[in-house]
Design a protein around this nucleic acid. Structure first.
Lengths: 84, 84, 84, 84
DNA sequence: GATGCGCTTTAAATGC
DNA sequence: GCATTTAAAGCGCATC
């Protein structure tokens, strides 16, 4: 493709097919992970936890300690300035 | 939480922590898949393939045969109607 | 379309075209708003404000008072439970 | 903020507030446009048109003529290569 | 100092 | 109407 000049049965076709199939394979696995995660949240929800808040927590935990504190401080400043 | 009435060291806390950690674990794996996929596209791109088109192809392959044909037919009709 | 049985110059074509053009018109205006918003943030940034935090503030202000407080309380609980 | 050294009632606060309110105003208008667009699609749908296809058409019309043709040609090549 | 690009995040749209 | 999935927007980087 893209200037390689063969459009059927050629080498490029094989390579393209290989790339596509590798992506499809990985996408399947990724989708399985997503399903697993969804299931956990679903279970947590039925246990009484708030999924949205859990997601916030996970995001906070993923952040660097310093960044998190800095951001929190800044947010507080802005909130005070605007009486929130 | 959410009415269970304990907020430190309690059972709910342990369960919450467990849920969170399981999600974090799976998210890590999922992110790794995403990175792998990105890498394949990147390699494909540097081989001369068009990544955007590849994504379209993958979407088409994921579709049901009938749906795909029906959609293509409909799109053609609309295109003709609007001189595209 | 979709069973109306005419595919060129017919009534349905005119209606389709009208719908499409109305959407396109509104989309243009919407894009203009988006550009204006971007510009304001850009100006704010060059004044020394933190755009990301500003976005958070706007989101908070858009929330219902009660929802916001409830969410904040819940988030605090979860944070304490997980030593954040 | 961000080094201006005043955090309540100061000049920066006024500027921040002004920026925020301008964004909020524009966002409201933008949301109204979005609602209008949704309404048109809804009407089109109840007239018998396929909304998803309409969106594809709009996207195609928004594209540059040359880009559209090039993309279509490329997509065809890839489809043939993969027997789609 | 601006522009393109890739990644992340946020918003919209489809389907249940 | 809600949840999932998909598309767009924003942000940061790296480059020129």
């Amino acid at each position: 493709m893209a200037g390689q000049g063969d459009n059927s049965g050629g080498l490029a076709t094989e390579r393209l097919k290989a790339f596509i199939e590798r992506v499809e394979r990985l996408t399947e696995e990724k989708d399985a992970m997503t399903a697993d995660i969804r299931e956990i949240f679903s279970e947590a929800k039925s246990t009484g936890f708030d999924v949205k808040i859990m997601r916030m927590i996970i995001k906070l935990r993923a952040m660097d300690e310093n960044d998190r504190k800095e951001q929190a401080a800044l947010l507080d400043m802005y909130k005070q300035a605007l009486d929130l």
